[in-house]
Write a protein that binds this DNA or RNA. Structure first.
Lengths: 248, 248
DNA sequence: CGCGGGTTTGAGACGTGTCAACGCGTGTGG
DNA sequence: CCACACGCGTTGACACGTCTCAAACCCGCG
């Protein structure tokens, strides 16, 4: 892990853009958001970003890369509860001053911005709209967890995998990380996808081949291509409204 | 649904006690909490408390009875995402002014207290500790959702059912709703339990019989008895720390 | 008395897990 | 530069947990 205090300008924008998606911010507030993170940590793939139970105050914002949150099962397996993409807050425990009860691990080289809590407090005192935006992000994250719950409780393997691909496509697209033709990077292992979806590695593999045979998704060398996102969404009953702060 | 403005004194206490579990409150704040709900709704079993998409402002607090939140699956099935017991906030959408994206339905005759949002705002302005307490409740709820996710992703039927019984036992116990000998009311249908755990009714039934044969849980006529909660907790790897606001 | 919702039981189908082996690419150390 | 180990993806055979369908049962209630 490398620490630095000099941000790349792109970083502050991804975080700002996320907030602007969920709530309007005055120019002054936008500027405050840009300047909020003062410490930046770069992780290589599969490094612990947060360790369960370690209380290390500060709001952590994902700025580039990919990470996931997970819980341990007694027998050593893991259940991934969320994937964290650029613009996401890593965990919302700081809102209620509760410790995180989960590990967070990077899945690709990633950088995380850290906002000191005192600093955050003075900022949101000045610009309460920022707190509103953050709380809306928290609500969306809760909503995404519940949608994953729906997947595990009610969808078969094909729909689970397809739905997750739709979700990642949708979220990455909004973050400007999807190239033309529905192509995006997904630096996941099939086994990690299984840990999120409650499927064995082997079955994830077969399911992906099925999607490929159906012409709905190609996943090779960490690159996913969705030639026809609408069809896939229809197949998996993917409705992105759960990722929005506001009903339209 | 019957509406009234005259609370039973017991109601305000269950809500207050919940908040006191997660954060200390001054006497004045406690009083404000007691007087916060001004409208009370009584529902009979299986009535809609909240309808998906219906924006009906106000914080809703469960005061007696049992309810659940759920999402629809495209084929008409439901995925229950949370059980709501006395003291719980029905949904935390009001925090970020996002509409609920879920239905809430009563499972037993229930009463719900409604706190007007303007009124809530002035109260928490006066006593910010109350907002802290509410946010901690929200964090716990998120934590419970994730634990359910772990169940669906990584536990077999026996452990899912056992774990849920442990959780209900633990939560109801803290609300003072467990009688001696580990006896408590659980006015659930086996099919509803299946909807929460991603299991068919038939399999829930067989699983319960298995728990009965093991001498770990008896469930008859909406009454659950856990003769040996510790053994059951050990079997299912139930660790109640996820239901606490603070790590000890 | 009959009806309906919930529970219980049985038999068989099917989705998914497990185990084991192999291929392939990459990095590493001799 | 080769040999090797290692991680990841892939394939096959088989076991097993859970689902589905169908029927019977129980009990409270109209």
């Amino acid at each position: 892990m490398i620490e630095s205090t000099s941000p790349s300008p792109r970083w502050s924008e991804t975080w700002l853009n996320r907030l602007l998606e969920v709530a309007p911010l005055s120019d002054a507030a936008q500027d405050a958001v840009r300047r909020a993170p003062q410490l930046f940590r770069q992780f290589s793939a599969r490094e612990h970003v947060v360790r369960d139970g370690v209380r290390d105050p500060g709001m952590r914002v994902m700025l580039s890369g990919l990470a996931c949150r997970y819980k341990h099962l007694p027998d050593g397996r893991r259940q991934i509860t969320a994937f964290i993409i650029p613009g996401d807050v890593c965990d919302f425990g700081f809102i209620s001053d509760s410790p995180v009860s989960q590990d967070i691990i990077s899945l690709a080289p990633s950088t995380i911005g850290i906002v000191d809590l005192d600093r955050l407090a003075t900022i949101v005192e000045l610009y309460p709209e920022i707190m509103t935006a953050i709380l809306r992000c928290a609500a969306i994250e809760q909503s995404a967890t519940q949608e994953l719950l729906v997947s595990l409780g009610g969808r078969n393997a094909l729909h689970r995998v397809g739905h997750l691909l739709c979700e990642m496509h949708h979220r990455l697209d909004r973050a400007g990380l999807v190239r033309a033709g529905g192509v995006f990077e997904l630096p996941l292992t099939q086994s990690e996808m299984g840990e999120a979806l409650g499927l064995s590695t082997v079955h994830v593999n077969r399911t992906i081949q099925m999607l490929r045979r159906l012409g709905l998704a190609i996943w090779r060398d960490r690159i996913v291509t969705l030639p026809d996102p609408e069809s896939l969404a229809r197949l998996c009953a993917f409705d992105p409204s759960y990722l929005k702060a506001q009903r339209d």
